[in-house]
Design a protein around this nucleic acid. Structure first.
Lengths: 149, 149
DNA sequence: TATTGTTATACTCTATAACTATA
DNA sequence: TATAGTTATAGAGTATAACAATA
């Protein structure tokens, strides 16, 4: 079917371009809703990401920077602001006195939980798909991401 | 099938959570590669988005702000910087002297073209899917986005 | 009076470089 | 010496409010 599709440039045919555009739309909408959900809790996007990270487990400052793919110096300010609001605290690392472990406080974990709940609601479009369709989508996304289990 | 899935919370079952996480990964990777491609042309993400917009058609400043979902005052600075590099120019609107039309220059259109080419390369993971799989992915993404044609 | 674009201001995020305290 | 975190600095994006020109 559709034999006129050139095999030498498989990523520039009309179908692929349409999928690329759809992915772009998903990305845009995802980001809008993430920022919106963060703003409802008076958090910036970066602060929300760090808080979500720390709500799972405490982490050295350096590791946060790696997760965020930014310079370590930036993390200082972000954690400063979260700490100023009582959502995060800095603890010493017993094994290495150079390291500071950033950890979510009880209040921070609560906020992170509410944030995640509102995000899940934002992602609800998936509810429109049947279980079988979600399975198909999962497999296609996995393959797209290079996970070939 | 899978009747144990609670119908009251269809967006919190394990399958959906996995898809949500995969979508999150796609979003993260898409953004990384977009910023990276922009940086290769010495552009920030916002500048690249505006340039891509204007390479298609000239546009009032106000409309750029709507497309970017930001305040109009921000667009002034972004267009200033693009204009300072000769990629964009401001033209008067013949129909309304309050309006300034931002338009990509020849140089700007060229840069936007190279940017898009490098983006298509970045999105090449789609090439790993067959035409049929891409069609399926397209339809699922469409439905996820609420487009029901 | 309402709208368009701009300016002024303040805050956040970002990268770079230099500093400190540990290792 | 090498590493972890911080500080200092500068540039960019963001929202808000006030302004000039035009409708």
């Amino acid at each position: 079917m559709t034999p006129q599709t050139p095999r030498t440039t498989p990523h520039t045919d009309a179908l692929t371009l349409e999928v690329v555009e759809l992915v772009g739309t998903v990305v845009a909408r995802y980001h809008e809703e993430y920022e919106e959900a963060a703003a409802k809790h008076s958090l910036t996007g970066a602060q929300a990401r760090v808080l979500a990270l720390l709500s799972r487990e405490p982490m050295p400052m350096r590791r946060i920077a790696q997760k965020l793919k930014c310079e370590p110096s930036n993390v200082t300010g972000i954690v400063d602001r979260l700490e100023g609001r009582g959502l995060v605290e800095r603890r010493p690392d017993p094994d290495d006195r150079r390291v500071k472990l950033a950890a979510a406080t009880e209040d921070g974990r609560e906020t992170a939980g509410r944030l995640r709940a509102s995000l899940n609601f934002a992602r609800e479009p998936l509810a429109g798909l049947s279980a079988e369709e979600r399975t198909t989508l999962r497999d296609l996304l996995r393959r797209m991401l290079g996970e070939t289990p």
